[in-house]
């Protein structure tokens, strides 16, 4: 027998703001967009900023508020990185949708319903350059009947001609207070109890990404029930306990290669993700006050290189060992250059 599926949805979806004015913390953006809603006229828009700051939410909310549920299907096209989005799609699907004319603006059911359609391109930075180039002309030709919303994390990956055709909005990372208030709101709705320590842990591990915070919260709630402590949250989030990082740092400081090697072996066996380890080690190194700036610079340079190698698919153990040995050399003022390299 197949088990039944409850009608539970991710909290991220459940608590997604439905209206532009509810979007937390992005004041300038909200102000401009409310204005748009009143005059029901808008330029092409480009939303950029780190993950979990409300870009997609804003785009969806404004589309909903402009058209209402009835017209939404026919007026809004939502494309995502996973829908195949090569140059072919731009040439056919987007163009076809963009070129259809729409009736003049009549208010339907209390929604403004302006006389244009909206194409939302989520994760636009993973579009190929060719596809972006193919969009340029399309945007201009059909600008009377179609507005484009681009959503991306890195504005540098959007080609300049596209970016210059849009009004740009930067979404900033959420501050701790805003995050806490949203989290507390959800906790109240879901009947969770969270002490203040867990709350601050949650906002520190999610680093301004509200979606991550909510996902962690839901994960922890599912695993551990309605009372959640800060250790539960750390367990769910995949963050490495601070103590482990400290131990590695101390081993580096001791200058003993073998004990550091043992520490590295332990970390790998415990299954901690090394990329996470690198970023936490980075925090420890930057905040340490007993080492010189030059030492910090040396360590950070190596951390960056190792991170790149990991992205390329290099082995975790060897990279972490290399970082550890380099950190040790920097901390113990051993020479930077290898002495026997010919």
């Amino acid at each position: 027998m197949a088990p039944l599926l409850q009608s539970s949805q991710p909290w991220v979806e459940k608590y997604r703001p439905k209206q532009v004015k509810d979007v937390a913390h992005q004041d300038e953006v909200v102000r401009v967009l409310t204005n748009t809603l009143e005059t029901s006229n808008c330029p092409h828009m480009l939303f950029y900023g780190p993950p979990g700051t409300g870009k997609t939410t804003t785009a969806l909310a404004i589309a909903h508020q402009l058209f209402g549920p009835e017209l939404y299907k026919s007026r809004v096209l939502e494309l995502n990185a996973s829908d195949d989005r090569g140059i072919n799609v731009v040439r056919t699907k987007i163009k076809n949708f963009a070129s259809v004319a729409v009736g003049s603006g009549q208010r339907q059911g209390g929604y403004p319903c302006p006389p244009f359609k909206i194409i939302i391109l989520d994760e636009a930075d993973s579009m190929t350059e060719d596809a972006q180039n193919a969009l340029r002309r399309t945007m201009e030709t059909y600008s009377k009947v179609t507005r484009f919303f681009f959503i991306c994390n890195y504005i540098s990956r959007i080609i300049e001609p596209l970016a210059s055709r849009c009004a740009k909005f930067r979404f900033k990372p959420l501050s701790e207070e805003i995050m806490t208030s949203r989290i507390l709101h959800i906790c109240k709705e879901e009947g969770l109890s969270l002490d203040s320590e867990a709350l601050s842990t949650l906002s520190s591990i999610s680093q301004g990404d509200l979606r991550r915070a909510i996902t962690h919260l839901q994960g922890a709630a599912r695993l551990f029930g309605s009372t959640i402590s800060s250790t539960d949250l750390i367990g769910v989030s995949g963050v490495i306990p601070q103590q482990v990082v400290e131990e590695l740092y101390v081993a580096c400081k001791s200058g003993n290669f073998d004990s550091a090697n043992k520490e590295v072996n332990k970390i790998i066996a415990e299954g901690y993700p090394v990329s996470q380890m690198l970023s936490q080690l980075f925090d420890v190194v930057v905040e340490a006050d007993d080492i010189s700036d030059e030492q910090k610079a040396r360590i950070c340079k190596n951390l960056a290189e190792a991170d790149k190698c990991l992205v390329d698919g290099a082995d975790e153990y060897l990279q972490l060992l290399d970082v550890t040995s380099n950190t040790m050399r920097a901390l113990c003022n051993m020479p930077q250059e290898f002495s026997f390299e010919s």
Binding site: F257, A306, C309, D312, A314, D315, L318, Q319, L321, D322, S325, N326, M328, R329, M334, F338, S339, F340, E341
Partner: peptide, 14 residues
């Protein structure tokens, strides 16, 4: 020598 060797191991594995 260990530092040097483990650096090169990481380098070539990459």
């Amino acid at each position: 020598l260990k530092h040097e060797v483990c650096h090169w191991a990481a380098y070539y594995e990459h």
